[in-house]
Amino acid sequence: MNIGLIGAGAIANFLLEELNGDEKEDLCIRSIFVRNKEKYRPLESKYDVTLFTDLQSFLQSEMDIVVEAANVEAAKTLLPAVIKKKDAVLISIGALADAELLAEVTELAMRHGHTLHLPSGAIGGLDLLQNANIGSVSSVSLTTRKPAGSLIAEDIDEAKVVFEGNAADAIKQFPKNINVSIILSLAGIGAERTKVKIVADPHTDKNIHQVEMTGDFGEAVFTITNNPFPDNPKTSYLAAMSILGTLKRMNRKVRVGG
């Protein structure tokens, strides 16, 4: 499967190293869409890829699927055009907190016969939540604790709650940090009803997510302690791996979970 990549940051480089550096994989990144071709020119020779700055030329290049690895604003701008032409994997899931964009992309995917894949990112338990939601889920809450410096600029000595509200408002205030709240919302009871608390902690170097849910199925509580991504402490390492895992599972004939 040939892959087109939007963005050339830390996660994009992780995918390039894992996929284009492994000849055993039946997955390869062929094209990359960037804003500044000269800045990322070395990627062409290092990973045997072609850089594009024109979106339509990028979408017409040799690819089967597009992976967005940029940011929420880029996702909002580019996703409608992408899903008209190709299947896609969306990393910046926070973009779908915009109800109008979600409705537009859903309609376009159906009309053009394409699929939008949403990786689980830095958390797990989405299969449990989706299955439970076939019945009735009454509450879903997320408490995220991250290194203080990845959330706020001020120096603090003790842990500080920097946000408490719902997922829709959380992604507006922390668009680079709380994508997990939106994937939880999409799998469960929506962004308005999904409760979120964000804690800036000067005493941790981990990204910690605690999810609690209740419903007809019973109750579930689980905690994931993630190492930050080496090249970007605002991102969990598991988030990068979930994208790679999503791509690798696409062609499998035996699929676990769901």
Rank of each mutant, 00 (worst) to 15 (best):
F222E: 14
D64L: 00
V67T: 03
I183Y: 07
L27Q: 01
T225F: 02
L184W: 09
K195H: 14
L27Y: 02
I83N: 00
I178C: 14
I189C: 04
F52C: 04
G149M: 13
A12D: 05
T115C: 08
V199G: 09
T225D: 14
R249H: 09
I123E: 04
N166I: 03
T225H: 07
A200T: 08
D54W: 01
L79C: 05
V72P: 04
V49Q: 01
K85I: 01
V180A: 14
V199Q: 08
F229Y: 15
F33Q: 01
A148Q: 13
A122F: 06
V82R: 00
D201W: 09
A109L: 04
N227G: 00
G124A: 13
H203V: 09
G218C: 11
P80V: 12
L151W: 02
Y237G: 06
A81R: 11
T235N: 10
I6L: 12
F163H: 08
M110Q: 12
E68P: 04
I83E: 00
A70M: 12
G258Q: 14
K253G: 07
I183D: 04
A240H: 07
I3G: 03
D127I: 12
P80C: 08
K160F: 01
K176L: 15
I183F: 10
L55E: 11
M63I: 04
A69H: 05
I156P: 04
R35M: 10
S45T: 05
E104A: 10
G149L: 13
M110S: 13
K197L: 05
V49R: 00
V49T: 06
G121A: 09
Q60K: 13
L118V: 10
T144E: 12
E62M: 01
V196R: 07
I152K: 11
L96C: 08
K46T: 10
N20G: 03
A99S: 15
F222C: 15
A10T: 14
Y40Q: 06
C28M: 10
M63S: 03
M250D: 03
F14I: 03
P80W: 07
I198H: 06
V66W: 07
A8S: 15
E107L: 08
N227A: 15
G113D: 04
N36T: 14
L79H: 06
V105M: 09
A239H: 14
V254Q: 06
T235Y: 12
S141H: 00
I171H: 02
Q130K: 15
G135I: 09
G257T: 11
M241T: 10
V67C: 06
N131D: 14
E192C: 01
L244P: 00
D157H: 13
F33W: 13
F217K: 13
S181Q: 03
K85T: 04
N131H: 12
T235W: 08
L108S: 07
A95E: 07
P42W: 04
I134D: 12
K160V: 05
N179I: 03
K253W: 01
I6Y: 09
I243R: 07
L129Q: 10
N133V: 05
F222A: 15
L101V: 06
K39E: 13
